[in-house]
């Protein structure tokens, strides 16, 4: 898919990205501006967040993240694009060299003690004490939470394990877990108590297709209940379907963010017309007369940038007596959007 994209779209896209003006959803920007300076209507907000490591490498380069409350925000980018460093800064694990961050309207890391109990996290893969069982590991994390009620600890750990399908392996030592089970235990830890925000870094890593589907199901279920979910992935297709909002990172910069449909609709759709080989020339002429540009002919199949409503195209073709065997409107996929923004394949490491 990526390689068939017309190359000349790329300069246009990079020009857009290079203008340092990410695609913003207007009402979110207004929310941020009209709300208090801390961005109370955004579950996650950063302003010029930057991390320069001592090696001189700029892992995160002045990003302005805006995750509206109640959204499922897909935080996308290749491995090494700065997603995990951003998440670590959001959680106060790594200090930013510049810029600020707010979680649930409160500044981080200053408000960590107040905010983080309401935030469930999975950061860069699960990590637990290898010699403790899954249940004991969750009990340990719960004991570390100064705001968790010890009386309900047992029930909550049990429920969390149940929820990710690990109840049967609750007493097994963590080191005997398979990669998929470890990932599930990580999710269970994030669900130890009701959360307002879930930050899930690569939650589908190591899961089989069935497990990946379950994670999507879980994310959707949580989002339906009102939890904001920030989910990062380098595998676009795995989370694309559940996201209401998208942010795309590459080389430490946030190239685009906003509502998913707005982002993809901002790109021109293409129309694909199938007719007979004999009528293809006439069809091309009709498309040209409609003012469609970028017409590409391949035997009986014609492709053009869609500048008019598709029903106009079909009516004009039928009106001109062209046998219309098929007409398809191709909306640009997120992957195409990504490729046009970054000029590279999706799964490219830095």
């Amino acid at each position: 898919m990526a390689t068939t994209l017309p190359a000349r779209q790329t300069p246009h896209a990079t020009g857009r990205a290079g203008s340092a003006e990410p695609v913003h959803r207007a009402d979110v920007a207004v929310d941020a501006a009209s709300g208090m300076l801390t961005g109370v209507d955004l579950a996650v907000r950063t302003a010029g967040l930057t991390k320069r490591f001592r090696s001189g490498q700029v892992a995160v380069d002045g990003i302005d993240l805006e995750v509206p409350r109640g959204s499922v925000y897909g935080f996308l980018g290749p491995n090494g694009s700065g997603k995990t460093t951003t998440i670590r800064m959001l959680l106060g694990l790594v200090g930013p060299t510049d810029g600020r961050a707010w979680l649930l309207g409160e500044p981080m890391p200053d408000a960590a003690a107040r905010v983080l109990p309401r935030v469930g996290v999975l950061v860069e893969g699960p990590a637990f004490q290898p010699y403790l069982s899954g249940a004991a590991n969750l009990a340990r994390l719960d004991a570390a939470d100064a705001t968790a009620d010890p009386r309900t600890s047992r029930r909550r750990t049990g429920d969390a394990l149940e929820r990710v399908g690990l109840a049967a392996a609750a007493r097994k030592p963590y080191r005997q877990y398979s990669l998929g089970m470890k990932q599930r235990l990580g999710l269970a830890a994030a669900l130890l108590r009701p959360r307002d925000l879930l930050v899930l870094d690569e939650p589908t890593n190591g899961l089989d297709p069935q497990g990946t589907r379950e994670v999507r199901h879980l994310v959707r279920e949580l989002a339906d209940a009102g939890t904001t979910v920030l989910v990062s992935s380098h595998l676009l297709t795995e989370i694309e379907q559940v996201c209401s909002h998208i942010g795309i990172m590459s080389r430490g910069r946030l190239l685009a963010q906003g509502e998913r449909s707005v982002l993809t609709d901002a790109r021109p759709a293409r129309v694909v017309v199938t007719t007979t080989v004999a009528d293809a020339d006439r069809a091309a002429a009709v498309l040209g007369s409609l003012g469609l540009v970028d017409v590409v002919r391949d035997g009986a199949v014609l492709e053009a940038a869609l500048g008019t409503p598709p029903e106009t195209v079909s009516a004009a073709l039928v009106g001109a007596g062209v046998p219309l065997l098929g007409l398809e409107v191709r909306r640009p996929s997120l992957e195409q959007l990504f490729v046009t923004l970054t000029g590279e394949g999706f799964d490219v490491a830095r």
Binding site: P117, V121, A127
Partner: peptide
């Protein structure tokens, strides 16, 4: 073990 980041994110 990587458990440090999870303890700090609890938060402790």
């Amino acid at each position: 073990a990587g458990t440090l980041r999870y303890l700090l994110a609890v938060p402790v």
